[in-house]
């Protein structure tokens, strides 16, 4: 898919407004064109992220989801619509993404992500976006991103709140397990919480922005987490985080690791896939 270091004249017209930005230029646009990003979850976060990645001209986008569009999604999942209710979210989103930009490659991956397929499915992409809605998949993505050495742009949203963090970016970038070595004990319920659509929009949008910054070399790589609260004053708070921890069970130093990665970390106890107890050894490869 490498088109060399030339951009069609048409693309100058299309992407000119971002190409004239300082530090971006032709080289930035070519980097986007050659880049691939996989968006895990085509829901409230994935939709706006896909939208802005496609509009900016990222050359290849993967969309992973195994759900179908429901009416209750439409208040926030803005790539789906009344006509695509019942369709796979991947297909519905891909259709919208191709309409935004017909010249990029879109991969549709309509299978549940599990420890059995994560490495295979994710390894082809430069950057992984965590737009999922459950903790087990978040741990699976973090551990796989560490094993594959890829940055993970993680977003989350619930009620009036949102969070954004880039994991495993550069040699010192921390991972989810550096912060929380083991997943929170599941409380047994998976009832749906409320969510305001525009909150997922803000976070998903920022995830696309982080990916674009990483691809074009504009990311300053300081480990931090952004906390958003729609009703807060101020609404945004940035938290300084440390670097990668030598004791991290996922990305730590061999011999210094504390704790273990369990296969059941990846299992949702309320409707997720059945556990496969054969450990995948994702921690180090």
């Amino acid at each position: 898919m490498d088109k060399g270091d030339k951009l069609p004249l048409e693309d100058y017209k299309r992407y000119g407004r971002q190409m004239i930005l300082e530090g971006f230029g032709l080289s930035g646009q070519l980097k986007l064109q050659k880049a691939s990003v996989v968006v895990v979850g085509a829901g409230g976060l994935g939709c706006p992220a896909l939208q802005y990645l496609a509009a900016a001209g990222v050359g290849r986008l993967g969309i992973i989801d195994h759900d179908v569009v429901e009416t209750s999604n439409l208040q926030r999942q803005i790539l789906h619509n009344e006509q695509t209710v019942g369709m796979h979210k991947t297909e519905s989103a891909a259709q919208a993404v191709r309409k935004i930009n017909s010249r990029i490659k879109v991969d549709v991956i309509t299978e549940p992500l599990s420890s059995l397929n994560a490495t295979r499915v994710l390894q082809d992409y430069d950057i992984i976006l965590d737009c999922t809605d459950n903790t087990p998949t978040r741990y699976l993505l973090s551990d796989t991103a560490v094993a594959l050495g890829k940055p993970l742009v993680s977003g989350a949203a619930q009620r009036f709140h949102g969070q954004l963090c880039v994991y495993n970016l550069g040699p010192d970038g921390l991972c989810l397990r550096c912060l929380f070595p083991r997943p929170p004990t599941q409380t047994g319920t998976c009832e749906e919480t409320g969510i305001l659509g525009a909150v997922t929009g803000v976070i998903g949008n920022l995830q696309a922005l982080e990916a674009i910054k990483i691809i074009t070399g504009l990311h300053e790589k300081e480990p931090s987490m952004l906390i958003f609260s729609a009703l807060g004053s101020p609404p945004f708070r940035s938290i300084k985080l440390g670097s990668k921890k030598p004791t991290c069970p996922a990305c730590g130093k061999e011999g210094k690791k504390i704790g273990e990665i369990h296969e059941f970390d990846y299992v949702q106890f309320c409707g997720g896939p059945a556990p496969d107890w054969e450990t995948q050894g994702l921690t180090d490869s």
């Binding site: 912060l179 929380f180 440390g242 921890k245």
Partner: peptide, 14 residues
């Protein structure tokens, strides 16, 4: 697990 503690906007780990 899953609760972040901040001391003056810095992760308490630090």
């Amino acid at each position: 697990p899953g609760i972040l503690v901040l001391v003056n906007d810095t992760d308490w780990e630090l």
